[in-house]
Design a protein around this nucleic acid. Structure first.
Lengths: 355, 355
DNA sequence: GTGAAAGCGCTAACAT
DNA sequence: ATGTTAGCGCTTTCAC
């Protein structure tokens, strides 16, 4: 590998100082336009490339953000990543992305790596089995901004970006009640995680608000996988009387649940109305199309990175100790419509959403 | 922000030299076990964190790989990313990920950033409108390994990881022919991209091999979006006689095409048999379930990173100028089955795949 | 087994 | 507008 060109080489070539070269390359205002041009020309011609490490070592700022995500291969998370990358890229930040694969152990290791890589800020969505956030302690004590999104810690001291899961679940459940459902099952995810815990709460509250008794055995805790949907459906089929509504905490599981129920001869929504969560593309493919809570992944990613960068730039030092709550909305489709609407339901998309 | 602890601080604390501290921290064999222990203890106690930049500046190696991907928010690409991250992480490499958003312009900018970040290697899947790969020239001339996957340049000089799109498309089309289809339409993607070009080729070859005339107007070039599926379906509905088979270059488009055809009263596969590409989760949700080419995204990501790292470690300097072709397979489901199989088709999954 | 010294390439005082 | 100087924190000869 040939020798790298440095600003010293350029300086020598042009008989000026390295300082001026550095300044020129960085478009410092106090450099003669002519000199600047010469510097750029020489740099291009000599095949110079700036050494980000030397610069970072010197500047003590990395222009890099770290992301720790449970899994990259989820529809929701990939939307988030896309949003994050977009904003970060526009702002000149790099993104180092790692996945915890839902284990605290990897999350801890990743946090450590991010710390040593001296990311300027860190974005985290917690793993399934993360019990505490001690592994982020170094970030707190060094004052490195840490922002949780979606799967956030209970500890309300942390900055987080979420949707109002309680409210969303309340709306979803209420919708089922309004469609005439009285025996509503809730298929939940891991109840140690805030989002699923909150969705359960919203479900409960909605029942209470409509004077429907909450029944412990109507809550099925699962891992929300496709397989879990099949199993949950089988449990539901055993129930007597048969439930007439199901609120599922994600779409993957809701869809496989519907498939299983249909195979068993249950009519959706006739016998059982179903509402999912996430508004994944599959909601518009399953028959009947699935009513679901639209969950702004891309936006969440964008907002998260933007907040972090604003904070780093001192623009919004207002407080990084806040919770940002994004809007979500119920998108009503056929799977939950026991009653006909006065106007026919929109074919698809968000048209029928209620704000 | 309090001062960072460096190896000098540790050295002073223990009255030994920074050299020894550095060696100890890096588990250099020639350091006394006792000393090593003392170093680690002091480091932990003093809250030391290694400065990756200083180390990289000195070592001229970054342990970082760059990834430039068209879009993060695609099912396939998120599988790839997940596979890449997994292997990279295990090997102690960081991943800097950026998206081109399908534009050559951003791809060029991203390549530049990756270059300045001195990634040890780069993984690229090309954007829609990338016309040439001049922007990767710096990597070639600096000897930085560059590995293309999936969307690779025509130029066969580059290392790439692909599936055999010609063969896969040939198999898919042949399957339709064997089901009795004679008028098979192909819904293709952007024909400037190798994968779609090759799928068209495979389709053509299969027709030829079965003495079916290739008809120009049976090829519909689209962007393979959901919307494109609707439009393509409408075109097909205009055709007289009606085609009896469709081979679509991805599943998203195939599914929306099926939905539109069904709405128009066409029976799938009775009137028209359909085969997709990618084996996305949606193939198992649409009714009838969609026959599709299984496309190993996760594996592609894993293999790509593993190859790159092996090369960097000098393990497989065999040649980074090769093409690695991964296996793909047709997964037969109801959407293409005009004839009953002797054995009943597998309910789902890859069981019915032909190798 | 340990240490001294030099330097990776850059930038930010502080001159001038 | 430009230059001098020093140092970011680490690793690596080379020496003992």
């Amino acid at each position: 590998m040939e020798k790298e060109i440095t600003i010293y080489d350029i300086a020598r070539e042009l008989s000026i100082s390295p300082t001026t070269v550095s300044r020129g390359l960085n478009n410092h205002p106090a450099v003669n336009k002519n000199t600047k041009q010469k510097i750029f020309d020489a740099a291009a011609q000599m095949g110079y490339r700036s050494n980000a490490f030397a610069s970072r070592l010197r500047k003590q700022r990395t222009n890099t953000l770290g992301v720790i995500v449970p899994r990259l291969d989820s529809n929701f998370q990939s939307l988030v990543m896309a949003g994050m990358e977009k904003v970060a890229n526009e702002a000149g930040y790099n993104l180092i992305i790692s996945q915890s694969l839902e284990t605290a152990q990897k999350e801890i290791a990743n946090a450590r790596t991010m710390f040593e890589n001296r990311v300027d800020g860190l974005l985290v969505s917690l793993a399934y089995d993360t019990e505490n956030i001690d592994h982020f302690e170094p970030f707190f004590s060094k004052g490195i901004p840490l922002l949780f999104y979606d799967r956030v810690p209970e500890n309300k001291q942390c900055t987080s970006i979420v949707i109002n899961n309680i409210q969303a679940a309340h709306t979803a459940t209420t919708h089922l009640v309004e469609q005439g459902c009285q025996r509503i099952v809730h298929i939940s995810g891991n109840l140690r995680i805030n989002v699923y815990k909150d969705r359960l709460k919203g479900y409960k509250y909605a029942l209470m608000d409509h004077n429907i008794a909450f029944r412990e055995n109507y809550v099925i805790e699962t891992n929300l996988s496709e397989q879990a949907g099949v199993e949950a459906a089988n449990k539901i089929l055993q129930m007597d009387p048969l439930p007439d509504g199901i609120f599922v905490a994600n779409d993957t599981c809701a869809v496989s649940c519907i498939k299983t129920l249909k195979q068993a001869g249950i009519s959706i929504p006739g016998d059982i109305a179903v509402v999912g969560f996430n508004n994944d593309p599959i909601t518009r493919i399953i028959e009947p199309n699935l009513t679901s809570v639209d969950y702004p992944g891309g936006e969440m990613g964008e907002v998260a990175v933007r907040s972090l960068i604003n904070y780093l730039d001192g623009v919004s030092d207002v407080s990084i100790t806040n919770t940002i709550t994004l809007r979500s909305e119920l998108v009503v489709r056929e799977s939950s419509l026991k009653k006909k609407l006065t106007a026919p339901p929109a074919k698809s998309g968000k048209a029928a959403g209620m704000v």
